[in-house]
Write a protein that binds this DNA or RNA. Structure first.
Lengths: 212, 212
DNA sequence: TGGTGCCTCAAACGCTAGTTTAAAACGTCT
DNA sequence: AGACGTTTTAAACTAGCGTTTGAGGCACCA
């Protein structure tokens, strides 16, 4: 078993367990047991539990943000010759990337949204600060394109509405499995990632534009 | 120190600390220390930490849900003679009640929204199930009025959009203090509860109606 | 005054957590 | 084959957790 193998197995196990039970409620013993590695391996390879949490985020977020950044640059290029990117297209691009930029099934995206939800509801802002520092620029780039897509919405209100949208996405996907049960019971219809994003798009677009 | 005094002091301390640091990260020792009572008092008066968490929710939610239920009944009465309650009015009523049904400043509402966020991102659905069981009927009553306010939105989509809205609210108010910092820096404008709900209303209304 | 419930208190219990240690195993190069 | 840096292993350590215990305090009524 090579080094990277152990590291990857730990990351895989941690990703799933953190999403399932939260950071505090997931013990290193549970992670290493699931990964089939020794308990001490986490502290050996990552240094601490906190560092492991950051590593889990980094492994997912870095490819996604690189892909998003490239795509946004492409879109900026298109609009340099006048016009702006439609609101729907911006969100479609982002969601398609979030769901499929890793080559694996969108199940991982779900797992990761759950993680994000827990990161945000976490008190200590170590993690939040770290996320903002590392991935803030892409977010601001997205926001700039957004501003040109809805020029009639004042920047201040747009800022808030983007956060509202983020909340809708993360919160919903965080509570997926319970919502899945409700939805199945009330509407006899199961829930897929594609299905949810399909529902999300009109809501977010309507919300950003504002109503009333 | 009378009994109810100790109980209330524990609830006060727990409410703040749970919101600040989460359920798992808040120890009974921290709670009793802040409350100025003995460690064993929690297990004596509430039985367990889990029961204390439920008690915190109950103390807040019961008055709110009673007030909301009464208000909804009143609205139903108005519409019995034909017509339906406008979307804006439904949400205005709900938000006003959430912010002011306790006689104290809306700061408590913020604390409570943080709690809700943590309850939802929590893995064990003991709490979620308990909340649903106790306060589900009011929610369904609200949903029924909503359905009549936007008859052109299919029930399935409305169901999702309501959850998206809930997510927007809880997520935003959960991350308040960090958003406060950003907003102050970028827009030189501080953030109040009234201000946020004012921003939320058009977003939620637009989102529920849907755009695109 | 003595007894009866309710409450408080300091101390301890059992347990699990993250982390550390030192020896053993492994792979690689001379 | 032997030495060396890296990785794995089992075991222990320290700390903090929720909970329990039994003695003590306090108000109230006979």
């Amino acid at each position: 078993m090579s080094q990277s193998d152990t590291v990857q197995r730990i990351l895989d196990a941690a990703e799933v367990l953190f999403a399932q039970k939260g950071f505090a409620e997931t013990s290193l013993r549970a992670i290493t047991s699931r990964a089939g590695v020794n308990l001490a391996a986490v502290n050996y390879h990552f240094g601490s539990k906190e560092a492991l949490i950051q590593a889990v985020f980094e492994r997912y977020l870095t490819p996604f943000c690189q892909a998003l950044d490239a795509k946004l640059e492409e879109l900026e290029g298109e609009t340099r010759s006048g016009g702006e990117v439609p609101l729907e297209k911006l969100f479609t691009v982002a969601s398609r990337l979030a769901l499929g930029s890793h080559g694996d099934e969108p199940r991982r995206a779900m797992i990761f949204f759950r993680l994000s939800g827990q990161a945000y509801s976490q008190p200590q802002d170590h993690l939040r600060a770290w996320l903002r520092e590392h991935y803030g620029p892409v977010f601001r780039r997205f926001l700039a394109l957004l501003r040109r897509a809805v020029p009639d919405v004042p920047p201040m209100e747009l800022f808030w509405r983007v956060h509202f949208s983020l909340g809708a996405v993360i919160f919903t996907l965080s509570g997926m499995e319970s919502l899945q049960a409700i939805s199945k019971k009330d509407f006899n219809q199961s829930v897929t990632a594609a299905h949810i994003t399909q529902q999300l798009l009109p809501f977010v677009v309507g919300g950003i534009r504002g109503g009333g």
